[in-house]
Design a protein around this nucleic acid. Sequence first.
RNA 1: UCCUCUUUAGCUCAGUUGGUUAGAGCAUCUGACUGUUAAUCAGAGGGUCCUUAGUUCGAGCCUAAGAAGAGGAGCCA
Length: 476
Amino acid sequence: MTSKTVAQLLKETPLQEVEIKGWVRTFRAKRFIALNDGSTLNNIQCVVDFENTPEDTLKRITTGAAVAIKGELVESQGKGQSVEIVVSAIEILGDSDPETYPIQPKKHSFEFLRENAHLRTRTNTFSAVMRLRSALSFAIHKYFNDNGFYYMHTPIITGSDAEGAGEMFRVSTLDQKNPPLTEAGEIDHSKNFFGKDTNLTVSGQLEAETYAMSLGKVYTFGPTFRAENSNTSRHLSEFWMIEPEVAFMDLAGNMDLAEDFMKSVISYILEHNAEDLEFLDKRLADEEKTKPQAQRSDMSLIEKLKFVTENNFKRVSYTEAIDILKNSKPNKKKKFNYIIEEWGADLQSEHERFLVEKHFKCPVILFDYPANIKAFYMRLNEDGKTVRAMDILFPGIGEMVGGSQREERLDVLKEKMAVLNIPEEELWWYLDLRKYGTAVHSGFGLGFERLVMFATGMSNIRDVIPYPRTPQNAEF
RNA sequence: UCCUCUUUAGCUCAGUUGGUUAGAGCAUCUGACUGUUAAUCAGAGGGUCCUUAGUUCGAGCCUAAGAAGAGGAGCCA
């Protein structure tokens, strides 16, 4: 007698006694249970001897019920599966009332399943997506570990609000109705839990830089929080970010690292998660069929993934990109909502989409952006007007990676902070890195959920994280 | 935050010019059948038409305010 997962049993040779526990997906003709235990997309068919099973037990074999089955693994008589279990004993571990169980053996809208997020991994699509999410997490740690990086845990609660990456969630234990006030009538944060105003982190980058400047190669992979009121299919209030930071590496090295990293993790899932990817490939193809011809992608999901692993990302400077956009058809015919007229304009998502989806038709790395549209910590180029920043743009997703070489010169950094009114005392420790043994260093940030979206072909970011947090929604 | 659309049975959705008792498919229940693959066939039950206020003899349908969801924009990862 063996106790194995469905994934293992489906690979076993027939004619042996087995036992299995799982959840009923469907029960057909009082005889055929499609059983799933989460170990694989596939179900194992369990054939019940309905003539010798009590009617009471048969009635309790319903969609969603947890059951324990003993029987013999045999070659299947029917089509559609190679092996099945002839049931000798079945025990109902947990009933599932068919009148109220929300997950029916039929198509559900993703909106409906989002409201039942605690049950949605009982569907093929979400179990496949979440297995891939897990595999991608592992592939990320494996890549960095194999390449000599240390995994660093940056703080979730942060005391600095100078990172400039967006609106922050305040962390406070003060009485919200009766906060202690200063003599000037302001909220007295010195009475707060940490003796100062604190927030949830928007990025671990600045702390990661401190460790890169001693441990050499580090990365963070953890939750980050943005209180932006953004309602799109590409933004979450709580999301997971990967941020490598490397000492003695310049922008070109940073681009090499990001590209190699992306190719590596995608290769990993192509190799290890073929079944789930094939299912999602088919799902996406079915979804594409419902779209008008013009909006359909000319590549399938797996083709897109292989395209990334097999082709070099196109590297284009901001200045070159502006030239391409200025001379593009939609710009000349004024089809863009924002017409590109001169160097220095910020690129809108319509422009990024044009470059990636129409012009180059592959992932694009844009670099050397105008200094005034990028963050204060980015390395100023010798031209005095651009910074060593890079964004990696992916078809259908937009910005996947944002990174830069960091400004390592103390005087230049101080000057930049002064212009932007960033108080030096807030970031005294960050400036110390430039005072004591400063060096060229670089890093990037990658939104994990955007990677999962690309890898699974899901089009809404709320469907690639277990319990999405978005404005007006923190259920579960 | 802005623009557009949506909200009717458990789910997905129809609902004509404002007019009697609001419909379909799937699901559920009952029965039949049994090597089925989202089984099939017959029957039954199931409704705060998102909320509030208004117009009207009469509102699922018209008006106003609000709520929630989706798509797009901005911001970004």
